[in-house]
């Protein structure tokens, strides 16, 4: 009885897998994705990048959740955040995760960048992935800046005022920059709407494809950590080179020396 059920389930699952594979090719894709060989040494170092990815996903999820209650208007933005914090079930947790994972995200990005820089991970053929990474960094900084104002509390408001005023010092375009950010010439409803649009729609929409490119390029060229992953192979290479060098000396002991000397003197003569 159990044996028959087992075989039936097996057949059914095999059928589903085959069916999906035939229609979408997803099974092969998954195999490629899951079973790619990656360096065994330094695996903990490479969790930095995945941590960044995970935290960004958390940002997306909790951000969408917060939008269920948040009201982007100067009259009610603060009130709605207050409601999330005090009234909504687990509101404190959802907003807390959004807030704290943003902080961890910035820290993790810093560590991730430092690791890639000091390991030389930006070298050919991975230059473009570094460039995409810098774009992602700028987008995340933009998100961090625009998100701060949305609470419409003293902290967020004044930090944004300072930030916008910094923008106003841009050479040649300062006046345009600040009026663009303000949505006019005073910090008011238009400013909040703008920051909301940037934080919730424009920047996340921009960041998503760049994350995709970053991951695609990573998979295309593989992670490159540091020379310590290759220490055995490098040792073998150096050993072989050394042996070849010795072999060279031993083989052409006299003749080569003679030829070399002649060559040199010829060279000098010319």
């Amino acid at each position: 009885m159990i044996g028959r059920m087992r075989s039936q389930t097996e057949e059914a699952s095999k059928f589903i897998v085959d069916w999906m594979e035939h229609r979408t090719g997803i099974v092969t894709q998954l195999e490629h994705f899951l079973y790619e060989p990656v360096p065994k040494r330094g695996a903990w170092v490479y969790t930095l990048g995945s941590a960044v990815l995970g935290l960004i996903v958390v940002q997306f999820l909790t951000g969408i959740l917060l939008l269920f209650y948040y009201v982007p208007s100067t009259d009610h933005a603060w009130n709605s955040v207050n409601y999330i914090m005090n009234e909504a079930y687990f509101g404190q947790l959802v907003r807390g995760i959004h807030y704290w994972s943003a902080n961890f995200l910035l820290a993790m990005i810093g560590l991730h960048m430092a690791q890639v820089f000091f390991a030389g991970g930006y070298k050919a053929p991975r230059e473009l992935n570094w460039v995409v990474g810098v774009v992602l960094l700028l987008l995340v900084i933009g998100l961090a800046f625009t998100g701060y104002l949305l609470r419409w509390d003293q902290d967020g408001f004044w930090a944004s005022v300072v930030g916008m005023k910094i923008g106003s010092y841009s050479p040649f375009v300062g006046g345009y920059v600040i009026n663009f950010l303000l949505g006019g010439d005073v910090a008011g409803p238009a400013t909040l709407s703008r920051f909301f649009a940037l934080h919730v729609w424009l920047l996340p929409a921009a960041i998503a494809p760049f994350i995709g490119i970053h991951l695609y390029l990573l998979r295309r060229h593989g992670v490159f950590g540091s020379e310590f992953e290759y220490s055995e192979r490098l040792a073998k290479l150096h050993e072989r080179q050394r042996l070849e060098e010795y072999a060279g000396y031993e083989l052409d002991d006299d003749d080569e020396d003679e030829a070399e000397r002649n060559g040199r003197s010829n060279g000098r003569g010319e």
Binding site: V161, M164, K165, S168, Y169, P171, F172, G174, G175, Y176, I178, N179, L182, D185, V186, A187
Partner: peptide, 8 residues
């Protein structure tokens, strides 16, 4: 004017 930071 163009470079002058505006008062927010």
């Amino acid at each position: 004017n163009k470079q002058q930071p505006y008062v927010v």
